[in-house]
Nucleic acid binder design. Structure first.
Length: 321
RNA sequence: GGCCCCGUCGCCAAGUGGUAAGGCAGAGGUCUGCAAAACCUCCAUCACCCGUUCAAAUCGGGUCGGGGCCU
């Protein structure tokens, strides 16, 4: 049983924002019986459609998508939630005799599914708030100093200014009595639940940036400002995580009258470029990724996927491919 | 033709004799439960030439470039 699960095939497609992932999925769906399991930390929010470039209804008809619209914008959602839902979705797709394609740009989400996650306690908003309050009260650096006492190995690996990670480490310690660095050492992303073929989509930088600009213009034409206004009208806190998404936070600034629409657009484009760059940095570190420029290389991809299917099928005769 | 002002990294910009702040853009990177987040690193000898000086982006002269005013 365990063995079969380990060998279950999973096609992974990653790439920076606007690199053409959805288009590629649709293209592949014409040749293979695939279903997409989205790995996107913003497309999980209901109501954030235009700004997160969710696959359209037409696209979803051609290639079924899972794990979109999971929670409301003000609900908590974490990598761990995502990973467990993803495993379920992947199992369902396999049970239907189809090939699951984990598709997305959120590096951590992808990794959590393909390599697992430490089994440290879930984040606790109350603990976080308390820690941050202390940092505010006793001054910057307080928490990091604490971390140096509690978990020296981790304190060595993260910069003193990284409050987010410092808080998480202290939170884990408080909740479990164990160091996060110990959890991590034991885990070391060593799980391999699937047999994967990883494809990375990366157009040349210049072209990618052009595509980003064009996509942002497109979002505006499709009515992103109205979508944002609608979310605010429904009472969502402009500070909530979902609304701090690129495209939303800038437009919120504009709606508040802090910046002009033109300025907002410039900011959205710029922040998207920065984001794309970070994604690229993340993916570059994964040696297993086979890189392609665009959908134009779908012939090459097709070959790769065929080989992949043959290989995984022969591993144990159960798969229906 | 005359007089005056200006010329610091792709952009904005500090620095007026002591050996080039900062911001933005750009590039590289980190990443184990907020990840479209958070964080880190890199990135100029000051238009050019001559001179004064122990020392010049800072002073003097000239050249080039930009702007203003006058005739």
């Amino acid at each position: 049983m365990k063995k079969a699960r380990e060998a279950s095939p999973l096609l992974v497609i990653c790439g920076p924002t606007a690199s053409g992932k959805t288009a590629l999925a649709v293209e592949l769906a014409r040749r293979f019986p695939i279903e997409v399991v989205s790995a996107d930390s913003r497309q999980v929010y209901r109501g954030l459609d235009i700004g997160t470039a969710k696959a359209t209804a037409a696209e979803r008809r051609q290639a079924p998508h899972h794990l979109l619209d999971l929670v409301d914008p003000d609900e908590d959602f974490s990598v761990a939630d995502f990973a467990s839902l993803a495993h379920g979705a992947i199992a369902d797709v396999l049970a239907r005799g189809r090939l699951p394609v984990l598709l997305g740009g959120t590096g951590l989400y992808l990794r959590a599914v393909t390599e697992g996650l430490v089994d440290a306690p879930t984040g606790d908003p109350a603990v976080r708030a308390e820690l941050l309050e202390r940092e505010g009260r006793e001054g910057p650096g307080t928490l990091f100093r604490l971390l140096r006492e509690v978990d020296p190995p981790l304190a060595q690996r993260i910069p003193p200014g990284d409050v987010t990670r410092t808080v998480r480490a202290l939170e884990v310690y408080r909740l479990s009595g164990r160091r996060l660095s110990d959890f991590q050492r034991e885990h070391a992303f060593a799980e391999r639940p699937y047999s994967t073929l990883k494809i990375g989509l990366a157009p040349p930088r210049e072209e990618l940036y052009r595509r980003i600009d064009r996509r942002v213009e497109g979002m505006l034409e499709q009515g992103l400002p109205a979508e944002v206004r609608g979310l605010l009208d429904r009472g969502y806190d402009p500070e909530c995580k979902a609304l701090r998404t690129i495209g939303y936070r800038e437009l919120i600034q504009h709606l508040r009258g802090e910046i002009s629409l033109a300025e907002a657009v410039i900011l959205i484009k710029r922040n998207s470029r920065h984001y794309a760059k970070r994604q690229l940095t993340w993916f570059r570190g994964d040696e297993a990724i086979i890189w392609v420029d665009s959908c134009g290389e779908s012939a090459k991809l097709q070959k790769l996927i065929e080989l992949f299917l043959l290989r995984t099928r022969s591993g144990y005769g159960q798969d229906p491919f």
